[in-house]
Design a protein around this nucleic acid. Structure first.
Lengths: 130, 130
DNA sequence: AGTTGACCTGGAGCGCGCTCCAGGTCGTAC
DNA sequence: GTACGACCTGGAGCGCGCTCCAGGTCAACT
């Protein structure tokens, strides 16, 4: 089973342009082509894309993803170095989550303040119309 | 107490250029100036900067921060709309955290796989040298 | 008086990650 | 045979958030 670029885009959630772009910058091995020279993405291609989008979601820069992709092309021998990249990224993600949670607290605090302002305001109106 | 731009940069963690840039794009009210025309940031300026950097950390686009800043300049009357922005952002942050946590699981899974590869590899070496 | 260094302004430039475009080729449907 | 639509290529353009630069002013120090 293989997929046209439009199908691959739909399934990966990336745009057609982005798929071609990823190929150009060596994130993605050039997929097979059909008789007419059109890209035919395999299930494997899609699985790799799905992992790539995970990495992107974590905020990994494309430069680093290319590094990972390059290692992957070298096969098993590069497994150690690939693992290092993932472990590093895991750390970065954990940090980022902590950072966001701290921000969440600040937001909650501010929102609480606005709540109090609203209540004071409502009280004022009750008083005025009493 | 007021602070030179260098001090403000040090305390806010932003660069001097970024401070001037924020002022240019109306994120920051133009701070007071000393006799020589140099910026003199107040404690309030710094507090606002610190909140701004929180918002940036959550990934709020600058466009939206400007909106918030503009409302703030309009005083109490805009409190309701400012609250809406913060509540919305809180939602976005919560979503983002969830997304990152999902990615974390994928990373853990992949890293586990690499661990297994390493162990299998180590076993092979033991066998070979036995 | 001269040098240094922090600061000023307006504007250009940059790295990132796409996104869009022009101009062309195919295969299918009418 | 022609119109259409999906796809192709190479390359330009874009929005974001800074970052850097040239050329200048000013206060302090020697």
């Amino acid at each position: 089973m293989s997929y046209s670029i439009a199908e691959a885009a739909r399934r990966s959630g990336l745009s057609i342009d982005t798929l071609r772009y990823y190929e150009r910058i060596d994130l993605l091995e050039p997929p097979a082509r059909d008789a007419a020279g059109r890209r035919a993405y395999s299930e494997e291609d899609l699985a790799w894309l799905s992992f790539l989008t995970r990495l992107r979601t974590t905020g990994m820069p494309i430069r680093r993803m290319r590094e990972y992709a390059k290692l992957r092309r070298r096969g098993l021998a590069s497994a150690g170095r690939r693992k290092v990249i993932l472990v590093e990224q895991r750390g970065a993600v954990a940090e980022r989550i902590a950072e966001l949670q701290a921000c969440l607290e600040v937001l909650d605090y501010k929102i609480d303040n606005y709540d109090r302002i609203e209540q004071a305001d409502a009280a004022l109106h009750r008083e005025a119309s009493a």
